[in-house]
Computed example of a mutant assay.
Amino acid sequence: MPDSKRAGHVRHGLPEPGTHGIADARSLPDESFEAGWSSIFLAGGLKERLLQTVASNLRLRATVPFEALPLHGVVLLTGLPGVGKTTVARGLADKIARVVGGLGPWAFIEIDPHALASSSLGRSQRSVEELFGQLLEEQAQRGPLVVLLDEVETILTDRAALSMEANPIDVHRAVDAALVGLDRLARRHPAVLVLATSNFADAIDPALSSRADMIVQVPVPDRDGRRAILEHTIASVAAAFPGAKQLLDRAVLDHAAEVSDGLDGRRLRKAVAAACANEHCDPERVTSADLYAALQTMAEQ
């Protein structure tokens, strides 16, 4: 369905952020999520394959019985900090709301897993059960839903790696409750998509990985990706400070991409900001030397 026909759709009755572990709740599509998706540069058409797979799976889940095709609607995004996993997840949520039509207005809910964890015996399990069994269940009944579980290892920790300390029984039960909740959502609500991110893939319980329809390792950008990120960031700065346009010179961008090997997207963008903090403290007077020095410093940290 075209964006123009979906833009006016608003999902009412969303939970208030700050309650029941909810970090964010909004209707989709969302312009800020769309902008974030556009700012992410992944090699090999990874973003496009991710979108195509998720959209296809949603259509399959709507028509093929779960017993024949056990798709859980779970996508797991792993990778180092700073590569853009959360931005990819939010952008994917926006894209799905634009691409997969005919289901009604979409909603997005982001979970703060740390708010569900508790040092009080039994509370983690109850919090997880309330989240999946009540809040998400109610939202799924109202229409299509995307759930983001950032730092998913916090609530779906690998149980085999746990020591018998710090309320281990409660942790085990909380993981069990989350898995049961995911299974229930998958069977009852084929228009629910769960996006999970983690910096520590080895810390995730294998039972979650086995439920994931797609596991994607978001990589550190290659040379072309670094160049695209730098160009995007510098162009945004130059829109406000025209003097920075000199950094958009092809030779400058090419060299900057070469000397920034190993930097993730977040650090690349911060390096542009650091370059602007030159001896003049003036982004209008930033030079290529400032940029190269900032990238070098960032790489050494």
Rank of each mutant, 00 (worst) to 15 (best):
M1E: 12
P2N: 11
A7L: 14
H9Q: 15
P17N: 07
G18F: 08
D24P: 01
S27H: 04
L28F: 10
E34G: 11
E34M: 08
W37Y: 15
F41R: 11
G44S: 07
K47A: 09
L50C: 12
T53M: 04
V54Q: 05
N57D: 14
A62S: 15
A62C: 03
V64F: 11
P65S: 06
P65M: 12
F66P: 02
V75N: 00
L77H: 08
P81D: 02
P81G: 04
V83Y: 03
G84F: 11
G84L: 09
K85F: 06
T86V: 06
T87K: 01
L92T: 08
L92E: 03
R98A: 07
G102N: 05
L103P: 01
A107C: 04
D112V: 00
A115S: 13
A115W: 06
R123F: 01
R123A: 10
R126V: 15
R126I: 15
V128M: 02
E130N: 14
F132D: 04
G133C: 07
Q134Y: 08
L136W: 11
E137L: 09
Q141V: 05
R142S: 07
L145F: 14
V147Q: 01
D150N: 10
T154W: 00
T154I: 13
D158F: 13
E165L: 13
I169S: 09
I169Q: 09
D170Y: 07
D176H: 13
D176A: 14
A178G: 09
D183G: 09
R184E: 12
R188W: 04
R188D: 07
P190Q: 01
P190C: 00
A191W: 05
V192H: 03
L195E: 05
S198Q: 09
N199I: 05
D202K: 04
D205N: 10
A207F: 11
S209Q: 11
M214N: 00
D222A: 12
A228M: 10
L230C: 10
T233N: 00
I234E: 00
A235E: 12
S236K: 12
A238C: 05
A238R: 02
P242F: 15
G243I: 14
K245H: 10
V252I: 12
D254L: 09
D254Q: 14
A256L: 06
V259N: 13
R266H: 02
R267V: 11
R267L: 15
L268D: 09
K270I: 02
K270Y: 04
A273T: 15
A275E: 04
C276I: 00
N278E: 01
E279A: 00
E279R: 04
T287C: 00
A289Y: 03
D290A: 01
L295K: 08
